[in-house]
Computed example of a mutant assay.
Amino acid sequence: MSTKAIRRGRATSAVLLLVVALLTGCGLPAAGQPAAGPAPADPVQAAQPAAGQLPAGHSVSAGVAPTPSPAPAISYPATGGNRWSLAAADTTPGRGSGGRLLRYRVAEERDIRGLPVAEVAEMISATLDDPRGWTAGGAWRLRRVGADSPADFTIYLATPGTRDKLCQDRPDGYTSCRNGNRVVVNVARWVKGVPGYGASLDAYRQYMINHEVGHRLGFGHERCPAPGRPAPTMQQQTLGLHGCTANAWPYPNGIRYAGPVGEYHDRLPPREGARPAH
């Protein structure tokens, strides 16, 4: 066979090999390199499970952030059993360096669910220790004590019906009150506030605390001084703002803020029943 024929045969064989490789999907080795085996699988793709399956060694929650526990439901009956849980003493130093020291307890009716007495007491103490609160005038120091210490007054978080028993005034089941050394906070207002207050629920709670403790300190009711002005703390803001804006603090700027002496006699909403769990 001639040299030209041999070269033509080799060229034809190379073309046939290339065609076969293209048709079968097999790769050809690069010049001077050995033929390679099957390409390794992509490790990222190989880790992906088939639809409806999980990778080996993984649980259902793998890679999923834990779901936070829901807040405990708040519930209370229309009238509780008049049994109480007392908060521990507040060991942090209170505000005020002079004036008369008044000790108070915080009690929560045991039928109330979802409002730990320690948390309620913490907010009450934070409100009474605030620099905008009653201690700013220098006449009082306020300190929370526990069950084993004498107290000058007790702040009760009570169900609406028990509120009526403790207050011994008109049995409205709606407002809070002060009766002697009892400062009674209605849990219905603590949980729901009042319509149209124009401030946060925390701000309304601060108002309730300061208003009723203000009565214990000897202050009576006041009225809105002028439309658009902040409401005095001793205004009956639960019954309406009467043109004023919501305000929880007796010393909002370090100076006693007050309005004209007097009361509002607004009509109360219908009596409320028990608060359902939510």
Results as ranks from 00 to 15, higher is better:
P38K: 06
S176N: 14
A14M: 14
K4Q: 15
V145T: 12
A274G: 07
H58V: 08
I74P: 05
L157A: 05
P40Q: 06
S75H: 02
G173W: 03
R223C: 03
P38D: 06
E263M: 07
R170M: 09
A199I: 10
P70M: 02
A118Y: 01
R189V: 02
L86Q: 14
L239V: 06
R178P: 01
S2K: 15
R8I: 11
D111P: 01
D202T: 11
G273N: 04
P77H: 02
Q236M: 14
V64D: 00
G193W: 09
V213W: 00
R178T: 15
T127M: 02
V183E: 10
T91W: 00
G220T: 13
P72W: 00
K4V: 14
Y207G: 04
G32D: 07
A188Q: 10
P270L: 03
T175R: 15
K165W: 05
P276C: 01
D129P: 03
T91I: 12
C177T: 13
C224W: 06
P252Y: 10
T24H: 03
R141W: 07
A121G: 09
A139V: 01
G173E: 10
M123T: 13
T127C: 00
T135G: 09
Q237K: 00
S69M: 08
L86E: 13
A248H: 03
V20M: 11
I155M: 07
Q48L: 15
A46F: 03
R95F: 01
P260E: 05
P93C: 10
G98R: 13
P38M: 06
V185T: 07
W84Y: 11
A46L: 10
E109W: 11
P40H: 02
R256C: 00
G99F: 07
T175H: 08
V183S: 08
P66R: 07
Y156N: 13
A126S: 14
A246R: 09
M208R: 04
A47P: 03
